[in-house]
Lab assay of single mutants.
Amino acid sequence: TRVETATETAWISLVTALHLVLGLSAVLGLLLLRKQFPAHYRRLRHALW
C-alpha cells in the first residue's frame, strides 16, 4: 500500500506540473501573439469573449 501511495503522489505532482507548464505556455503564447500580431490578438479576443 505504501508503494501505491508514493505512485499516487508522483502522479499528482506530475499532473500539477503539467498543468502549470501548460498554463504558463498559454500565457506566454498569448503575450507573444499580442506583441507580434495585435490585429490577430484582438480578433481572437472577440471570438473568445
Rank of each mutant, 00 (worst) to 15 (best):
V27S: 09
L18P: 02
V21W: 06
R42L: 12
S25C: 04
V15F: 03
R42N: 11
L14Q: 00
L28Q: 01
V27H: 00
W11N: 12
L48E: 02
W49S: 13
H40E: 04
K35A: 11
L24C: 03
L44W: 10
S25Y: 01
G29P: 06
G23L: 09
F37N: 08
L22M: 07
A17Q: 01
V3N: 03
G23P: 09
L44V: 07
A47V: 07
T16I: 13
L32R: 07
V15H: 04
A39F: 06
K35E: 09
L18T: 05
Q36F: 15
I12Y: 11
L22Y: 01
L28C: 14
L32Y: 11
V3Q: 01
V27D: 01
L14M: 12
R45F: 12
Q36G: 11
R2P: 10
L33G: 05
A6M: 10
T7H: 05
A26I: 13
L18N: 01
H46I: 09
H46K: 06
V15D: 07
A17W: 04
L31G: 06
R42M: 08
L30E: 00
L44T: 02
I12R: 11
L18I: 12
L20T: 06
E8D: 08
A26S: 03
T9N: 10
V21D: 03
G29K: 02
S25Q: 00
L33S: 05
L18E: 03
K35S: 12
R45V: 12
Q36C: 15
L31V: 14
A26K: 03
G23W: 06
T16W: 07
E8W: 09
A6S: 13
L31K: 04
A39R: 04
A10M: 14
L30G: 11
W49G: 12
A39H: 06
L44M: 05
K35M: 12
K35N: 14
K35V: 12
G23D: 02
G29Q: 01
L18M: 07
R34F: 15
A10V: 09
L30M: 09
R45H: 07
L14E: 03
R2F: 14
E4K: 01
L18Y: 01
L20D: 01
L32T: 12
A39N: 11
A47Q: 03
W11D: 04
T1R: 03
T16D: 04
H40R: 06
L24S: 02
L18A: 11
V3E: 03
E8N: 00
L32H: 13
L30P: 08
H19Y: 05
V3C: 03
T7S: 11
S25R: 01
E8K: 09
L28T: 13
A26C: 12
R42H: 05
G23R: 02
L22G: 10
G23H: 00
H19R: 06
Y41C: 14
T1F: 12
R42A: 10
L48T: 07
G23V: 13
G23C: 10
R45E: 05
L31Q: 07
A6I: 03
G23Y: 02
L31Y: 15
H40Y: 15
E8Y: 13
A10C: 05
E4V: 11
L48A: 08
L33A: 11
R42P: 08
K35P: 04
L30Y: 15
W11Q: 12
A10W: 15
E4F: 03
Y41L: 15
W49Q: 15
T7G: 14
R42E: 11
E4N: 08
R45D: 03
V27K: 01
T7Y: 14
H40A: 14
T9S: 12
L28A: 15
V15L: 05
H46M: 01
H46W: 06
H46P: 06
L18S: 05
L48F: 08
L14S: 05
S25F: 07
W49L: 10
A17H: 00
R43T: 03
H46R: 07
L33P: 01
H46L: 11
A10Q: 09
V21N: 04
T1E: 05
T16M: 12
W11I: 05
F37M: 12
T9F: 12
W49H: 13
W49E: 06
F37E: 02
L32C: 14
T16S: 04
